[in-house]
Each structure stands twice: as structure tokens, then as C-alpha cells.
Design a protein around this nucleic acid. Structure first.
Length: 113
DNA sequence: GTTTTGACGGAGA
DNA sequence: TTCTCCGCCAAAA
């Protein structure tokens, strides 16, 4: 294994990320929780080493921002998917994806809270 | 075996 | 609300 986490966990992480629908985003912490990873940092390592073939652009920080070196690509790809980003920050309130929701949710429901 | 670094998160100022 | 500092897990030097 390339990482310190079991292959199964890495596989699960990849599966979770691959499952993120276009136009939605998740945080590293969310992926870590869904994939049962030890921490959110390992997600970054997984993406760095074996995330080339994954929609890594849909994974961002808990505060809605992204890392400096990826900022350009991230924003460009997300914008192409319909995710509005303001000043390098994505509105998690409206674009955060829940694994329990298989189908897209009406945007009108997102603003209820 | 210890220190540094990284695609992070959360609390505090 | 934004910026900073500390804690976290694992890899590389």
C-alpha cells in the first residue's frame, strides 16, 4: 500500500469522491467520515497520490476555500459544473452534498434552514 | 529515531 | 466575518 491506511479505506475514499454528483461539493472532513478515514489529512494524501482520476475539484476545505496551488483549477472546474465561487470561496450552504441524498435536491429546500 | 512537511479542521482573537 | 495558531495523521528526509 502506498499510504498508511488500509487499501480498503483508500478504495472507500476513492469511491466516495467518485460518487459526488457534478455541481455538488464536499469537505475533506466529510469524505474522511464517510470513508472511515483516521483524519481529513489522509484524504489530501490519497487525492495527491491516487486522486488523479477522481473529481478532486469537488473536495474542498471545511471553510469553503481551497489550497492555493489548486485554486485556479478548482475554481475553473467548479465553475464549469455550475458551482458559483465568490473570491475563491464556495458557498457550502448551497452546494454541500450529503451521501444520504442520492438524487439532486431542489435548491428551494436548501434555504429552509 | 527525530524533525519537517502537506491537496486539513477547529477554536480563539 | 476574517486571520492566526494549535492539533491531527502519515510520509519523506
Amino acid at each position: 500500500m502506498v499510504l498508511g491506511v488500509p487499501d480498503e479505506v483508500v478504495r472507500r475514499v476513492r469511491a466516495v469522491i467518485a460518487r459526488i454528483p457534478a455541481g455538488r461539493v464536499v469537505t475533506y472532513g466529510d469524505v474522511a467520515g464517510l470513508a472511515e478515514a483516521p483524519s481529513a489529512q489522509v484524504i489530501g494524501q490519497v487525492l495527491s497520490l491516487e486522486g488523479a482520476d477522481l473529481p478532486w475539484q469537488r473536495v474542498l476545505h471545511a471553510n469553503g476555500t481551497c489550497s492555493p496551488h489548486l485554486r485556479n483549477e478548482q475554481l475553473a472546474l467548479l465553475q464549469a459544473e455550475g458551482v458559483s465561487s465568490v473570491d475563491g470561496k464556495v458557498d457550502l450552504r448551497g452546494y454541500r452534498w450529503d451521501a444520504a441524498i442520492p438524487a439532486p435536491v431542489d435548491e428551494s429546500q436548501l434555504g429552509l434552514f
